[in-house]
């Protein structure tokens, strides 16, 4: 408990630039700050009541800037990445990115009183895991974990469900039925 609290205090302190000097070297504080920064920017967009187009553009910018979409795309394609031709890889990445941006923009339509609390940061090899909790107005809490690598988000786990792993299963099943070109065509259709 004391360990956890201390880590959280450190994490919170590092959100303040002035306190950064006291922090141990490493990326933990920057990972927490990254998540904090993104959350603040998303909330600002949602609270100002921007138009749909404006909101989508801002969210797309935040996503492109802070998510390592290349790494996510490769991981999500799994073994099919290795057998794909360079042309297929390029088309897939472009279509995947567009579809993800569209999905994320639609996810945050309006702000309805949720609270985000950023908690402990733990290290797992090269990755930093940032724990957080969203509390809904009706009191339900949702546990989140952001996975950060080299200063960019590579996965989000919601209540134990990794978006990357779920997407990989999803794509894998589609590829088995319709082939990689079928998947790319479907993603292109959705992103357009």
């Amino acid at each position: 408990m004391s360990m956890l609290t201390r880590r959280m205090v450190i994490g919170a302190m590092c959100a303040l630039p002035a306190a950064a000097a006291f922090a141990a070297p490493g990326g933990a504080q920057s990972a927490a700050a990254l998540v904090n920064g993104i959350a603040n920017r998303v909330l600002t967009v949602l609270k100002t009541g921007a138009s749909d187009v404006e909101r989508e553009r801002t969210l797309a910018g935040i996503l492109r800037e802070n998510f390592d979409l290349q790494a996510i795309g490769r991981a999500v394609l799994g073994r099919h990445w290795n057998t794909a031709t360079p042309e297929q890889r390029q088309r897939f990445m472009a279509a995947f990115e567009k579809a993800e941006v569209r999905a994320y923009s639609n996810r945050f339509k309006a702000y309805s009183g949720q609270t985000l609390t950023v908690g402990a940061v733990t290290h797992q090899g090269q990755r930093e895991l940032v724990e957080a909790q969203i509390v809904q107005p009706n009191g339900t809490a949702i546990r989140l974990v952001w996975e950060v690598m080299n200063g960019k988000i590579v996965d989000v786990t919601i209540e134990g469900v990794s978006m990357a792993i779920t997407r990989r299963s999803d794509f894998n099943a589609y590829i088995q039925r319709n082939g990689l070109d079928g998947l790319i065509a479907e993603l292109e259709r959705r992103g357009s």
């Binding site: 956890l4 609290t5 994490g11 919170a12 950023v118 908690g119």
Partner: peptide, 14 residues
Amino acid sequence: SLPLDAPGRAELGL
């Protein structure tokens, strides 16, 4: 699992 009232909390959407 997250001690919400711990001193180090960083609350965002208020």
